[in-house]
Amino acid sequence: MSVALVIVTVVAIAANAGIAAADFAKAPFVLANSAEVRVKREWVPWLAALKTAGAAGLLIGLVGYPPLGVAAAVGLVLFYVGAVATHVHTRVLHNLHFPAGYLALAVATLALTVAG
């Protein structure tokens, strides 16, 4: 297991857990962004659950069962591809760097996990 894999995965876990916590707490910035990209408010907890599951899967993959880490990374890549697509579809580009950053973390985690 490489140092890069551990660092990138830990950052991805923290980032996804953090944004999931903000989603579950219905932070004002989360609700504003969701409304702007036309995501229904009642979907936010479900999306947070997916982010939480992704973070948990990355953690389990890192500490003991790598296939789950790969599956979680694939799931997060797909999730954030959808988020980026939603931003582009709704033409909300001023904050596209947020889902794109999470996508980059998920892609990096997936690449390092598969290579590792």
Rank of each mutant, 00 (worst) to 15 (best):
G101S: 04
V92N: 06
G82E: 14
V30E: 06
A12C: 06
L105G: 04
R91D: 09
A108H: 00
A72K: 06
S34P: 06
A73R: 11
A12L: 02
G18E: 04
A108L: 11
R91I: 03
V8I: 10
V63Q: 08
A108D: 06
L103V: 10
P28N: 07
A4N: 03
V74G: 00
H94D: 15
M1V: 14
A48T: 09
A73C: 12
V84Y: 02
A104K: 07
A53C: 14
V84H: 08
A106C: 06
I13L: 03
F24L: 12
A17F: 05
W46V: 13
L5M: 14
S2D: 12
V11W: 05
L110T: 00
G57V: 15
L5G: 04
H89Y: 08
I19Q: 04
V88E: 09
V11C: 07
V63W: 01
V44R: 00
A56C: 10
L31H: 14
A17T: 05
S34K: 08
A111P: 09
L58H: 15
G101L: 12
V6W: 07
R41K: 13
A14F: 06
L62S: 13
A53L: 15
A100S: 14
H89N: 09
S2A: 04
A25Y: 07
A100Q: 11
Y80H: 12
M1D: 05
R91Q: 09
G75E: 09
T9H: 10
V81T: 11
L96T: 07
K51V: 11
H89L: 15
P45W: 10
P99A: 06
G116Q: 00
G64S: 15
G75W: 06
Y65L: 15
T113E: 09
L47P: 04
V88L: 05
L68C: 08
A71P: 05
H87R: 02
A14P: 02
L112D: 08
V39C: 15
L31E: 15
V77H: 14
P45R: 01
A27T: 10
K26E: 11
V30G: 05
N33R: 12
I13C: 01
V70E: 00
V10P: 09
Y65E: 04
L50Y: 07
A111H: 00
I7F: 13
A56K: 07
N33H: 05
V77A: 14
N95Q: 13
F29D: 10
Y65W: 12
F29C: 07
L103M: 04
P67R: 11
A104D: 00
L68Y: 01
V77L: 11
F24K: 01
G75T: 13
A27G: 04
N95F: 00
A73S: 15
K40V: 08
V84W: 03
A115C: 09
A17Q: 03
P45K: 14
I19E: 06
G54C: 07
H94F: 01
G61H: 01
A35G: 15
N33A: 07
F98W: 08
A106W: 00
H94A: 12
E42F: 15
L110P: 01
A106T: 01
Y80W: 06
A108T: 02
W43S: 11
L76V: 03
G116R: 01
A14D: 02
K26W: 05
L31S: 08
V10Q: 03
G116M: 00
A53Y: 12
A4Y: 13
